[in-house]
Design a protein around this nucleic acid. Structure first.
Length: 310
DNA sequence: ATCCAGGCCCGAT
DNA sequence: ATCGGGCATGGA
């Protein structure tokens, strides 16, 4: 009982009046760094974020994060974990800088990025869509899937700059399973349609689920390599997509996804632009250099390379 | 017009 | 195990 009161007091202090002091966090940098796709920008550092069946109106003013339409319980149970706000990023950054001091200015440009903890099914589907695709188009596709078969979420109409007061949650597994291959094709998803259909069916039948990655006895995640193999058994999921799902939804922060941008900057920084180096070698190098913090390092490098068109 | 995007599959070595 | 061709679509 005492324990419960103590926990409650801690959290109450942290999120008084649905506001929260934040450090090593920037809302815009975190949302706009290519790890999530279902959100709408309203203003400078003000967004509607759709995740876990909710639409959050959220705004950051300096070091204060304002949850404008969420109940306290949702903030505690959904949004603080979602934004990864219970983690010390100071420690992470100093580890990365020690591994290679050249990362210092790179981290500085996006020092407010946090790695989100997203829904497994949504992340898996989103990153199958992401292959050989562009971020604005991925966002459109995810929004289209949600509009088609997701549950409507109403927002207050008097929110400034809101284009539509209706948002749509990402479809449930059952709703997702109703998409036919043709439906995916009609959403301009091209050759990914059969991959998406296959994975949607497997998700609905629980042939793959979050549960498969939990070691219940140990109350921990199964080993990284085993988890990756499970994901790569799915059609349309290779090394890169698997790593993104591991990193952005399952909590494997050592994952080091290698896409075209990471390839470009890693070749430049560590391989003298030798085009013969394979993505697998780059991944192994990144994992070795940055270890359990590989995913964070990768994300700073990714957005730096993309924004500066390396 | 040609190249490229948060790549992967599949058949040939 | 590794390599190269093919693949849908739309933005730059």
């Amino acid at each position: 009982m005492l324990h419960i009161i103590w926990i409650y007091a801690l959290q109450y202090k942290k999120i008084k009046d649905k506001k929260m002091k934040v450090k090593d966090f920037d809302l815009s940098e975190t949302l706009e760094c290519g790890q999530c796709f279902n959100f709408e920008k309203l203003d400078e550092n003000e967004y509607v974020v759709v995740a876990f069946k909710k639409a959050l109106h959220v705004k950051q003013i300096k070091n204060e994060l304002l949850f404008l339409n969420a109940k306290e319980k949702e903030i505690e149970n959904i949004w603080i974990p979602y934004f990864d706000l219970n983690r010390d990023y100071g420690k992470i950054k100093s580890f990365i800088k020690k591994a290679d001091p050249r990362l210092e200015p790179i981290i500085k440009e996006n020092k407010g990025i946090r790695i989100l903890n997203q829904d497994f099914a949504e992340t898996l589907i989103s990153f199958i869509i992401s292959q050989q695709n562009q971020i604005p188009k991925i966002k459109r596709a995810v929004r289209a899937l949600s509009l088609e078969k997701g549950k409507e979420i109403k927002l207050s109409k008097d929110i400034k700059n809101l284009t539509d007061s209706k948002f749509y949650a990402f479809p449930t597994l059952e709703a997702l399973s109703q998409f036919k291959e043709e439906d995916f094709k009609n959403l301009s998803l091209g050759y990914r349609a059969p991959y998406l259909f296959d994975t949607a069916q497997k998700l609905f039948k629980k042939e793959i689920s979050l549960n498969d990655f939990l070691d219940k006895k140990e109350k921990t995640l199964i080993p990284y390599e085993d988890a990756k193999k499970k994901l790569m058994a799915l059609k349309g999921v290779g090394e890169k997509v698997a790593n993104c799902v591991l990193l952005f939804s399952l909590g494997y922060r050592e994952a080091f996804p290698v896409d075209t941008w990471i390839r470009k900057i890693m070749l430049k920084m560590y391989f003298s632009d030798n085009e013969k180096i394979t993505n697998k070698e780059i991944e192994a190098f990144g994992k070795n250099l940055f270890g359990k913090y590989g995913g964070y390092a990768q994300q700073y490098l990714f957005i730096y390379a993309k924004n500066n068109r390396i």
